[in-house]
Design a protein around this nucleic acid. Structure first.
Lengths: 229, 229
DNA sequence: TCCCCTCGGATTGCATGCAATTCTGGCAAG
DNA sequence: CTTGCCAGAATTGCATGCAATCCGAGGGGA
């Protein structure tokens, strides 16, 4: 029971976290060798992790040329946010119809954690901001919806990492709070409006300018080896 | 240039087609060895293909127990169709706003092919019925949307294979035609209505009866394992 | 100067071998 | 007849070796 994580699972989780917390920036190359070495496993395991990340859209694999953290284009960014609006609206509608028993509490406690991480200037805050939306999806109970939302949220993080301003962490915690209020009142109109506004804010932040890539991954990866949260 | 298909790509494509055409039925075991042998490659390639199919939701991989064609539950079926309605509505709205130049022609010619396959009683007709919806998504031009639609459509095929009647191939080609008409007229109301009807027809067909093979006790027992009531 | 071609380095694609894990059948005990 | 258990079979998880592929640098010819 304790070791339900195979090695490639561990690598997958670590890499994912590193990317979502923007420690690994878009464009960074991810050679199987380096990853295998830093994690103390063979290329095979690293490879599997990379394959899964690729199917999540977090890394791009070009045949015989290796893997790299995905660099979404502006067009793809548009697509992601458009679809994200569609999906998040669905989430809100469902939650206004039926919110699970301790749903509101869970949301509130998540926002508290966001605030703590933000005050501590922890990189976790970036990831937590995204996970708020994933938590919303989880409250609907639909595995598939969770899956899809996770994908668009992850890709959004990537987009912010590529195009956003450096400190885009303060991703509208206020708006998260307002959204919770509207959900509590079962007011889909308001909730959708807030969500749209929230997403537009994120999207706009993405359109500032383009910064370029960076260095050496082993140093970064060492910080993400432990599977802790 | 001609061979842009790596071996695992080829296996992936073949298995996918076999599953979507219901040649491989839900629950069928897919050992790496057999696949590798039948395709004349090693387990490694087969494994990669299976991993990708798993992330598409077409096969389920249990650690140390191997892969098998996924057996969606009725609950998952509900989730799939609910989300599918959401996504297909988005597709229709976009296509009513902006339909690419040769879009209508492409749709019509696809339906023609569906009819041909149906008359020939080819198993292709099953897959083509699904691919009609994927073609719709392609006309929106959004890669991500294509991706998501492909997933729900694939899973729908699987659901029909598991729960549907044997000859569920005649999946409303009429409705496909009507839908094309509504799209040509840029009438999202009608188009959505047809689509909803179409999907409900498919969904209902799924709920006829459960021609299951091995009723699974473990599934039930798992719910009673942890709670000590 | 510019272009093409070839060569070397780096990295993946794939095959295979071995250990770990899980399932299955049969046998003994209650 | 049912229950517990152990050995063998089947299958995966992972490591490693080798060949294929791609990119970039440098030399020769126009």
């Amino acid at each position: 029971m304790s070791t339900n994580l195979s090695r490639s699972d561990a690598i997958y989780a670590s890499l994912r976290r590193a990317i979502l917390e923007q420690a690994l920036k878009p464009g960074t190359k991810l050679p199987e060798d380096s990853i295998g070495d830093t994690f103390g496993v063979s290329r095979t395991s690293a490879r599997n992790a990379l394959l899964r990340l690729a199917s999540d859209g977090l890394v791009e694999i070009k045949p015989n040329r290796g893997a790299a953290v995905a660099m979404p284009t502006l067009e793809e960014a548009e697509e992601v946010f458009a679809l994200r609006r569609c999906l998040e609206r669905e989430v809100i509608e469902r939650l206004c119809k039926r919110m699970p028993r301790d749903g509101i509490d869970a949301l509130i406690s998540h926002v508290r954690e966001e605030e703590r991480a933000l005050q501590a200037s922890s990189p976790r805050s970036i990831r937590l901001a995204g996970e708020f939306h994933i938590l919303l999806a989880e409250l609907t109970g639909s595995k598939l919806l969770i899956d899809f939302i996770s994908q668009v949220v992850s890709r959004s993080s990537l987009i912010l990492a590529r195009f956003g301003r450096p400190h885009s962490a303060e991703c509208g915690i206020d708006e998260h709070v307002q959204l919770i209020e509207a959900l509590k009142e079962q007011d889909p109109q308001t909730a959708c409006r807030i969500m749209d506004h929230h997403l537009h804010a994120v999207e706009d932040r993405a359109k500032t300018d383009d910064k370029d890539d960076g260095p050496d991954i082993t140093e970064i990866l060492n910080r993400y080896m432990s599977a802790s949260d």
